[in-house]
């Protein structure tokens, strides 16, 4: 097999964003296919934990896809932004800059955003605002808990003797969880900025609704052995937003034995196979005309940014905090 080609570019105003581009072997490119744009996981640079995004990019390029891995401003090798945008707004603007560059320099008008953790959150938040986004691959995105999740969580805890001891004494997390979640499942008073926070749930519902409106194909990969314990079954993403009709656009997968970062090689191999299969089989729409919905996106983001400072999102610091 001919080797893929890897090059690096500096992109955007002031050439401040560093983007690594992996291209198919000469003559093997799928010209009409969307470009895959991979986003940072938290403050980890574009290579990814265990080099996972380099390997994925090479596998995709070998199959004919152009792949861009870039660092948000202030992360990895990219320069820190010099404006006053919030961390979240800056990241979303950086995605726009990359898509503008792909369109201007190579004529690509269709992209799939792919990210893990905060990268998944950035992908889905942006996906509804830009007609050039035709797909979003969401690896362990932030997802609100559901009744079934709590049931799984509690059953899991019940199997642990220490949980029983705490429950009997009324001091443990299990006792607290039972009391708070089953007795008041819709209280909406979760920790500020956590998936349990009703304001965050509504924000996420809004961004998924916008992605549906933009006819964006979605891949959701949730993990069950994660330290974050925010998902416990494949359909949780559907149950979390019962008012939305995600099913026609969604492929949902669940890695029961995988950790949040896909640290183990066998999990990454399985993950890459699923991502490739999704990209090759999903019905991504054709390019459509329309302007980037910056104003609506800004309004939406600034609404949630009011929570800035209270929020700590699984190390990703999506909504608040400084990225550098």
């Amino acid at each position: 097999m001919k080797p893929v080609t890897e090059n690096v570019y500096t992109v955007g105003p002031g050439k401040s964003l560093v983007a690594a581009v992996t291209e198919p072997p000469r003559g093997a490119g799928k010209n009409a296919a969307p470009v895959i744009v991979i986003l940072n996981t938290g403050i980890i640079h574009r290579v990814g934990h265990q080099r996972k995004f380099v390997v994925l990019a090479r596998e995709l390029a070998a199959r004919g896809y152009l792949v861009v891995r870039f660092d948000f401003g202030g992360i990895g090798d990219s320069e820190r932004r010099k404006d006053n945008l919030s961390a979240l707004e800056g990241c979303l603007d950086d995605i726009r800059v990359i898509l503008d560059w792909l369109e201007a320099s190579r004529g690509h008008r269709r992209s799939i955003l792919l990210g893990l953790c905060s990268g998944a959150d950035h992908a889905i938040i942006y996906a509804g605002s830009d007609p050039r986004v035709v797909g979003a691959g969401l690896l362990d995105p932030m997802i609100p808990p559901t009744r079934r999740f709590y049931l799984h969580y509690i059953l899991h805890r019940l199997t642990r003797p220490r949980s029983w001891l705490s429950f009997v004494t009324g001091n443990g997390r299990l006792f607290t969880t039972v009391r708070k979640r089953l007795l008041k499942p819709k209280s909406g008073q979760g920790q500020a900025g956590s998936p349990e926070d009703e304001r965050v749930r509504l924000f996420l519902k809004n961004v998924y609704a916008r992605a549906i409106e933009n006819n964006v194909q979605l891949l959701s990969v949730l993990t069950g052995a994660s330290d974050t314990r925010q998902s416990s079954y494949r359909e949780q993403i559907l149950d979390a937003f019962p008012d939305l009709d995600l099913s026609p656009l969604l492929r949902a997968e669940f890695f029961e034995d995988s950790d949040h970062l896909f640290l183990f090689e066998h999990d990454r191999k399985r993950l890459n196979a699923i991502i490739i299969d999704w990209i090759e089989t999903a019905n991504f729409r054709e390019a459509q005309e329309g302007a980037v919905g910056t104003a609506a996106l800004t309004k939406l983001v600034r609404g949630i940014a009011m929570l800035s400072g209270q929020i700590a999102m699984f190390g990703g610091q999506v909504f608040g905090g400084q990225l550098i």
Binding site: H156, S226, D259, L261, L263, E265
Partner: peptide
């Protein structure tokens, strides 16, 4: 590995011939 997973240790991965997940 233990911090990021609720019950996985490194032994399982070692048996699969990888070190440090690589």
């Amino acid at each position: 590995a233990q911090r990021h997973s609720t019950y996985l240790g490194h032994e399982r991965e070692r048996r699969r011939g990888a070190r440090y997940g690589l």
